[in-house]
């Protein structure tokens, strides 16, 4: 996936300003940056949820606008922050929606298998017939991830997956992200607020500042005192813990 000079304006104010980067396959890429730096907007534009003003998002060599939405949904899945629905839906029914791009409303035995696998992968078997509005935040998030797994896409985009989760569920979520990449061979792109989660669990970090890419590189390249201080305007200390650069700030 290639992003070139992506730009978005809201009411004349430029929120994303000619952003360019390339996503390496089979890796975890975190987009970080302060509030309003444009990371979620970029995520929206590369997943076709938000229309871009100018620039290019190329997926497998061709512009995502030229892709049929249905075809794209078999290759790329996006999960946004707030997921709530008015309808009564069980976990299994939600996960089954992941198969929609393949089979429309009618599930084939193959689809059922994929759904079983996704539920098992997220260890949701005990809850599969519960309604999602009866689940805790962490379980609900896992149910939505299971749906994305059932969607069986090469690329998975997650917008702040740890938002509103406590420390236990957040680090569990990040371990799941790592497994999606390592075990299932997916390319995972996520927007994160927690720099240390990004540092510990990703392969690459793309740091945003004021609508531009401040730095894109491997974790070690981005997690430096100078870069982070410049982006966030706060003093940072970088420490190496189990071979990963982690930051301390206060």
């Amino acid at each position: 996936m290639l992003v070139r000079e992506l730009t978005k304006k809201y009411d004349g104010k430029t929120v994303v300003d000619s952003v360019s980067f390339q996503i390496p396959k089979r890796s975890v890429i975190s987009l970080i940056g302060p509030n309003g730096a444009g990371k979620s907007t970029v995520m929206g534009m590369i997943s076709r949820l938000i229309a871009r003003d100018s620039g290019l998002v190329a997926f497998e060599g061709s512009d995502i606008r030229k892709w049929k939405s249905r075809d794209l949904s078999k290759r790329l899945a996006i999960l946004t922050q707030s997921n709530h629905t008015q309808v009564k839906l069980t976990v299994r029914e939600l996960v089954a929606f992941g198969r929609f791009p393949y089979s429309g409303g009618r599930l084939t035995p193959e689809d059922e298998q994929m759904i079983d696998r996704a539920i098992a992968y997220m260890e949701l078997e005990p809850f599969q017939d519960r309604f999602i509005d009866e689940l805790s935040g962490g379980q609900r998030q896992r149910a939505y991830i299971a749906m994305v797994i059932a969607q069986d896409t090469e690329y998975v985009l997650l917008d702040e997956p740890t938002n509103n989760l406590d420390i236990y569920h957040s680090s569990n979520m990040m371990k799941i992200v790592r497994r999606l990449c390592d075990e299932l061979g997916k390319t995972v792109i996520l927007v994160l607020h927690e720099i240390n989660y990004a540092a510990f669990y990703s392969d690459y970090i793309c740091a945003f500042s004021e609508g531009r890419v401040a730095k894109f590189g491997t974790v070690k390249e981005v997690m430096t005192r100078e870069t982070l201080s410049a982006i966030y305007g706060v003093d940072f200390e970088i420490m190496e813990i189990s071979g990963k650069p982690l930051s301390i700030y206060y």
Binding site: L49, K68, S69, R70, T80, N83, T85, F97, G105, Q151
Partner: peptide
């Protein structure tokens, strides 16, 4: 009408699942 089931998941989910 057949897409209505998916649309109740919300705009973002519906687009994610390939609905115009």
């Amino acid at each position: 009408l057949k897409l209505l089931d998916v649309m109740t998941l919300g705009k973002n989910q519906a687009i994610n699942l390939g609905v115009d």
